[in-house]
Design a binder for these strands. Structure first.
Lengths: 137, 137, 137, 137
DNA sequence: GTGGTCTAGACCACT
DNA sequence: GTGGTCTAGACCACC
């Protein structure tokens, strides 16, 4: 079952956290095609946030093709599909990476410390989301 | 000389893009202490944005100790110094990492790809010796 | 509730006056953690100044860790935390002291009068116990 | 003879530093009525700053009545006179003091540390400027 | 509703 | 010339 956790004090929007976690869980193979997502109201209640916020997250996931809604049934993990062109993805990743590294370097962190911080975070994400792979079409 | 580029219509604020690029240039050793930044008005004209936006970016850089302003003279790369307490540095690194990972995940990257991107960038940086050039006292 | 007053036409910037007063209220223990600040628009209207000016003051308070914003909710007095490194704290204390003394000297005050003014204020503050109420962890 | 020192990295304007030091020297009695000030060009050369800056400082001092110029001779310490009404002076001192204390408290400094910082600064100023008193009319 | 960003254009302080 | 402050009013993101 999809287990989601959110952090209210973060600078990452709540809906974004939901989107990221679902996406991660799906991409890592923990949730095969057809897995049902919790209902908007159930998840909102569980996370103690506004249902609108959950609805928006789900809408984003639908728009991206990660999940699909079946009328009167709920949301389910969808067949995978591509969104961005490869160059665009790469360019955006590079920009984000440079922004992160500039902050880290400016704070005085060096290679080893940065590597270890990234490693720890990724490890945590992976332990949450599962490990099996799922290729994109 | 400092060369800056920005992308309008991105989800990252204009002033933040300026901050990131200056920080990157300074941290990577491309701009030694004392290097003058373009004047607020000149940069605004060059980037075709409002001078206020540039001024805000510069103000942020001053606050972080990356740059210093001399009244009536202009902005210059500052002597590196430790501004934030250790806990605050960690907090900021975490926040930056979170933003980066969130963006990477949104783009569909997973653990291995992210690791390799980070690794490549760091290796490139270290081979330039950039990270050694600006030790804090 | 937070009551703020400003003086236009002073040599001290409006946003700085707001920052000072909020900081004072928080540091003196008058506003415990979690106290909501007036909304940007409400305060701007009350003080008859531009919302941008209030927003800037609030942004500064966030950066200093005095206040935190919850997206779509508002600004609240934050859990105290150590933001700056020791050297930076000293630097800032020195700068603030310099500004204060410069103003006092400009007004014609000399050593004895300045000492007594500082002493009176501190004594008043301590008798209220305000300085004890907000220990940093 | 009037000895002046300035700090270029400070947030206090250069002309203000000159004004403050002269005022302090005069108020503390180190420089009796009639003491000559260095010429604008001489002082500018000595401090390695723009003559305009010195000229502005002298103009301010003249306007305030601390010094007076005698055509073709130069600047001299003048007979003392009052500038602000007492309540106005007190109000301004109070505002400046509150601003300083709010910053200090916010940085985590407490009574003892603040007192000692103020004391050190004042002692330094007094050792520079002399100690004899001079009453205002 | 909340705060955050950006623009346009003005005025001031400093050198 | 430089940067710093303030206003007016717009648009967006979040809840």
């Amino acid at each position: 079952m999809l287990e989601l956790r959110i952090v209210t004090g973060s600078n990452v929007p709540l809906y974004q956290q939901i989107v990221d976690q679902v996406r991660w869980g799906v991409a890592s193979g923990a949730h095969p095609v057809g897995t049902p997502l919790p209902s908007v109201r159930a998840l909102a209640e569980q996370l103690v946030i506004n249902p609108n916020t959950v609805a928006r997250a789900y809408a984003d996931l639908v728009r991206e093709g990660v999940v699909e809604t079946r009328a009167g049934k709920g949301c389910f993990v969808a067949e995978p599909r591509k969104v961005y062109a490869d160059e665009e993805r790469e360019r955006r990743l590079d920009a984000a990476l440079e922004s992160f590294l500039s902050e880290a370097l400016s704070l005085g962190y060096r290679g080893a410390a940065i590597r270890s911080a990234v490693e720890q975070r990724l490890a945590r994400l992976e332990s949450q989301g599962g490990t099996r792979k799922r290729e994109r079409r």
